[in-house]
Design a protein around this nucleic acid. Sequence first.
DNA 1: CACGATGGCAACCCTGCGTTGCCATCTTGA
DNA 2: TCAAGATGGCAACGCAGGGTTGCCATCGTG
Lengths: 225, 225
Amino acid sequence: MSGPMGRSTGSARRTQGILGGRSEQVVRRALDAAVVELARSGYAGFRMDAVASRAGVNKTTIYRRWPSRAALITALVSVMRTPLRESPLPNTGQIESDLVHAFTRRFTFGRKMEGRAWARLLEERHNPEVEAIIADAVDERRDEWRLMVTRAIDRGELPPGTDAQLLLDLVRTLVDSRGSSGRLDTIWLTLAVRTVIAGARAGTLVRGRKTRSVTGQPRHSLRGA
Amino acid sequence: MSGPMGRSTGSARRTQGILGGRSEQVVRRALDAAVVELARSGYAGFRMDAVASRAGVNKTTIYRRWPSRAALITALVSVMRTPLRESPLPNTGQIESDLVHAFTRRFTFGRKMEGRAWARLLEERHNPEVEAIIADAVDERRDEWRLMVTRAIDRGELPPGTDAQLLLDLVRTLVDSRGSSGRLDTIWLTLAVRTVIAGARAGTLVRGRKTRSVTGQPRHSLRGA
DNA sequence: CACGATGGCAACCCTGCGTTGCCATCTTGA
DNA sequence: TCAAGATGGCAACGCAGGGTTGCCATCGTG
C-alpha cells in the first residue's frame, strides 16, 4: 500500500501532467484493480482490501469514494460498459447471425478482463445485490433486443406470434450459464442460438399456444411458496 | 440454544423411547434445521450458528459431527436425496414426457423444503464447493439419463447421431437456472423441454455436424484464459 | 453407581466489511 | 509565495461469521 501516492514525493508530480490530477488517477487505479479482482474472484469473493492493495491505494480512500462493495461494482460496470451502450445491435438480415453477434459482444467488449468480470457477475445473478447491479446496467435496451426478433418474424424466418422475450430469455439463460470458467466458446454459443431458433421455427414459442402440462399440475410452481 | 437437550432434565428421557437415543435425535434435528436454513439462505448465506440455534443444539456439537459447512451440507444432500436415488427414471415411450417427468422429480422429491434446498444449491453451482457437493450426489446416474435420449433415437423420435449429453446439458441448464425463486413452473419446464427437443429434431444437436462459427473465431474461448 | 461417551458453554483466533481519528501531502487562489 | 481546504494514508476499532479449544454437565450402559 505504499505506491507512488501519498507520502512518497516525486512520481505523482512528474506524471501529473500526462495522467490527470491525483484524484483522477486514484479513481482510475481503483477501478482498474476492481475489474481484475471481480474477474478473479467474482462478486461473493470480492475483497475490498484486495482492490486497495492492487490499486496501491488505501482502503479508506476506496470507501470514501464508494460507500460499499455494491457501489464500487455498480460504478465499475457503468464505466466499463459505456462503449457497449453506444454501439447499435447487429442487423445482418439473418436472426441466427444477429443473435450470435449480439451475444458474443456481451463478453468481448473492452479488454479481456472486462468481459470476464461481466461474465462473473452474470453467473451470480441469483444474488439480489448482483441482480440489481445488472438490471441497473442493462434493462434499457430490452426493446432493441426484441426488435431483432421481430424483424426476423417480419422476414418470415420465424412463425408469426413467436414470443420474442421468451426466445431471448432462453438463449440468454443458456449463454450466461457459461459466461465464465472458459466454457463459453463459439461452439456452445452457436449451438444454443441454433437450437432455440430451430425450436421457435417449429412453433414452440408461439405466444398463446396452449402449453399442455405433462406433469398434471398446470399453472402451479413446482415448489410451494 | 437452551432447548430440551443438555442440562434440562426430563423431556429428553421421556421422548427417548419413541425417537431414539440422544445422538440420533441431535443428528436429526441438526439436519432438519440445515435443510430449512439452506432453503432460506442458500449456500453462501448459510450460517452455522443459525443451524445450531434452529436445531436447539450447540454450535460445537454441529462442528463435532461435521467439520465444516461443506461437510454438513454434503451429508444433508446425501440423506435427503436417498429416495430419489432408489426410484428408476421414467420411460413413457415419449422423450418429451420422459424429460418433463424426470426434471420435475428433481425438485419435488421429499418434503417441500428439500426440493427448495436442492434448487438453491443448483443455483449456486458456479461456486466450486457447491459444484463438488452436487457432483458427489448426482454424477452416478449420468448413463441412465443418456439412455432416455438414446431410446428416443431408437424409436425414431430424434435423428440418429443426436448428442444425448448435449441435449441433456441444454435442458438442465434451462431448468436449473430457474430452480428457485418460484420461477420454475411447469410452463417454463415444458417450454424448455419442447424447444430443445424441437431443435434436436431439426438436427442441431447431431454429433460431428460442422458447427460453423459465425463469429470467425472458431474453437477458441471468447475470453483469453 | 462409576465411568466413558456425548453435549453445552464461553471464550478464543482469524478473516473480511465498513468506520473513525489523526496526520501528511497536494492544490489552489489570494 | 504561502495558507487553508481538499484529498489521501495509516492504524486501530467494532462487528459478524467460520472454525477451535478447554472445561464442565449430563447421559446411559455395564
